[in-house]
Simulated assay, not measured.
Amino acid sequence: MVEVGTTNMTHFKDFESALTQDTAMILKVHPSNFSLQGFTSSVPREELAKLAHDRGLIFMEDLGSGMLVDTGTSCCSGDPTVRSCLDAGVDLVTFSGDKLLGGPQAGVIAGSADLIGKLRKYPLLRALRVDKMTLAAFEATLRLYLKGNTASIPTYRMINRDPEDIRRQALRFRRKLSALLGSTHLRSVLLDVVPVEDTVGGGSFPGSVLPGYAVSLRLPELGSAGKLAEKLRLLEYPVIAGAGGDRVMFHMRTVSERDEKRILEGFTELFAINEARADNID
Score class of each variant (00 low, 15 high):
M252L: 15
R120W: 03
L232D: 01
K147F: 09
R175K: 15
A127R: 14
F173W: 05
T199V: 14
R161K: 12
E230V: 04
G201N: 11
A229F: 02
N160T: 12
A229N: 09
T150F: 05
Y213D: 03
V108M: 10
L180G: 01
A243H: 07
M252V: 14
K118M: 10
E236H: 00
Q169D: 07
D114T: 14
V200R: 09
S188R: 14
E164W: 00
L142F: 06
D198P: 00
V130A: 11
R187E: 13
R157S: 07
S188T: 11
S208R: 08
K121R: 14
G148V: 06
P220K: 09
N149L: 12
R126A: 14
A151V: 14
L135R: 07
A241Q: 03
L171N: 06
R161I: 05
I153Y: 06
L186S: 10
A225W: 00
S208A: 15
K176Q: 11
E221W: 05
A140V: 00
I116A: 11
M252A: 02
P154K: 02
A137G: 04
F173N: 11
A170E: 02
R175G: 06
A241V: 15
Y145W: 09
K231I: 01
A110P: 03
Y145G: 02
R167S: 00
P220R: 09
R120Q: 13
G182S: 12
L191P: 00
A243V: 09
N160P: 05
L219C: 08
G223L: 10
Y213G: 03
L232Q: 01
I159W: 07
R247L: 01
M249Q: 15
E236K: 03
L190V: 11
L171A: 14
V200T: 09
T184S: 11
F138I: 05
G107T: 03
A136M: 09
F250N: 01
S112E: 12
R129W: 08
R247S: 09
L222G: 09
K118R: 13
A225Y: 05
V209L: 13
N160A: 12
P206T: 14
R174Q: 15
M133E: 15
I240L: 13
M158W: 14
K147I: 04
R167V: 00
G202E: 08
R172S: 09
Y122E: 15
L128G: 04
L177G: 05
H251L: 14
G111T: 02
R157F: 02
D165N: 04
I166L: 06
I116R: 09
L217H: 01
R161Y: 08
V194C: 03
K121Q: 15
Q169R: 03
Y237A: 13
S112V: 02
K147P: 05
G223M: 10
S188F: 00
V215R: 04
L191N: 06
R143C: 08
G244Y: 12
G111S: 04
R174P: 06
D162H: 03
Y213A: 05
T141K: 03
A225G: 15
R174A: 11
K147L: 11
I159P: 00
R187G: 15
I240S: 13
M133W: 13
L234Y: 04
G207Y: 12
